[in-house]
Design a protein around this nucleic acid. Sequence first.
DNA 1: CATTTCACCTGGTGGC
DNA 2: TGCCACCAGGTGAAAT
Length: 275
Amino acid sequence: MPELPEVETIARGVHDRVQGDRVLEVWLGRHSEPFKSSAAEMAKGLQGKYFRAVERRGKHIVCDLGSIPRGKPEAQWIVHLGMTGRLLVTAEDAPIAAHTHARLSLASGRELRFVDPRRFGRLEYRDLNDLKGFTAPGAEPLEVDAKTFAALFRGRRLAVKAALLNQTLLSGVGNIYADESLFRAGIRPRRMAGRLTAAELERLRRALAGVLRQAIKLGGSSVSDYVDANGVRGFFQLEHRVYQRDGQPCRVCGTEIRRVVVGGRSTHYCPQCQR
DNA sequence: CATTTCACCTGGTGGC
DNA sequence: TGCCACCAGGTGAAAT
């Protein structure tokens, strides 16, 4: 489900609703897949902690926690939504959705819940006395400068689409925004990353930042059932130029949009507008 | 090492 | 209606 704009929307929504709130009780489901750290340690660590802040790092949602409401974070709860994960703030008596893996009851009388049918999402608890704070491995697409961006692709022999999806190069780009940014930059997804010209790379960097910013403004893309922390759908899917539009005419030139597989992922492009 | 492929899961859709 | 193949917004391990 979620790429950078969706994760940003959810992180902001959760931040606004839980900042200053305190965890009273923790319930964790019995499926082990979502738990990157031991469930027992996570439950014990979360209990009693205050939410200092909730922020996005790449596709991760990082909750800074402390034993008092303010000050330096003492621990972090890190949520990765995978393909189908949701992080929701609910009333405590709200019905419990199928595939709910974590419920944090809060002093305000609400609950923070993690729901994930496919269980590709991950939850991690970090005690910052033992471990460093979470940092995303790749560059932030909304902050990276032209020189750094170009250096990420230099010498690489894989398709530019695959490079965009590599989270150790850029953090936060997924299948929708890789395709949409390549369309806006006029670059074919199968072009070898290391063979792009300086001008093409700069077009791509700007197209990517532009499409991500616009998507954040519209609350992300709701392709199937994506909703933010308040259960509200996004609207960026209405702005898609190529993603899941194969067989339909290009909105710019009318040529039929094609679907191919690149790096094992569905890839959509306009053979006329993208070279 | 860099790159590619595949497995991990459930659920929705569309064809027969 | 039922059954089945195929597809899905992600990632990391294994293979090449």
